[in-house]
């Protein structure tokens, strides 16, 4: 992510220090993670100490300081999904894209996380990719869904 784009985001928030979290969220959304240079640039522009920006960027789970894939996969491991075979879904996904939960593949295509409940237990087992919910999923269907992502 280049400086000009970061500046653009900062400018849209009027360069207000109080918009720090919103700005970081926007960079996170576009770039999928927050590189050190981005944090420095935002700190400089907002005149917020880097130590503070770093504290905030590490405090919230929504931010990542390590590279993340373009597609965020969340496999629900909540009770309802669990009894309907969430573990097999997770195993299939891990097998298919070759990473474990909490990891990102080397091509930065996918990041995989487990979550404890996404609040639609009637659809279990559930997998969510980039905010899109795939419910009542089977290991076979999981593979099909994953193939649809570039």
């Amino acid at each position: 992510m280049d400086k000009a784009r970061i500046d653009q985001i900062v400018d849209r928030h009027g360069g207000e220090a109080s918009a720090l979290i919103q700005i970081l969220l926007e960079i996170q959304r576009e770039n999928h993670w927050l590189p050190a240079e981005a944090l420095k640039r935002v700190s400089d522009r907002l005149k917020v100490p880097l130590a503070r920006t770093q504290h905030i960027a590490t405090f919230y789970k929504a931010f990542s300081l390590v590279p993340r894939g373009r597609h965020e996969i969340h496999v629900c491991m909540g009770t309802a999904c669990h009894v309907r075979g969430a573990q097999r879904i997770l195993d299939t996904v891990e097998d298919r894209i070759g990473i474990k939960a909490g990891e990102t593949d080397s091509e930065l295509k996918f990041s995989l996380e487990t979550v404890n409940c996404i609040g639609c237990c009637a659809l279990g087992p559930v997998m969510e990719i980039d905010g899109k919910t795939h419910g009542k999923i089977s290991p076979a269907k999981t593979a099909d869904v994953l193939n649809g992502y570039k």
């Binding site: 100490p49 880097l50 130590a51 503070r52 770093q54 504290h55 590490t58 405090f59």
Partner: peptide, 19 residues
């Protein structure tokens, strides 16, 4: 601001900004 907190809860710790 050469030193600050990072992370939170049980993982919270102090961290120097190297530069």
């Amino acid at each position: 601001n050469a030193v600050g907190f990072v992370d939170r809860g049980v993982r919270k710790e102090i961290c120097f900004i190297p530069e």
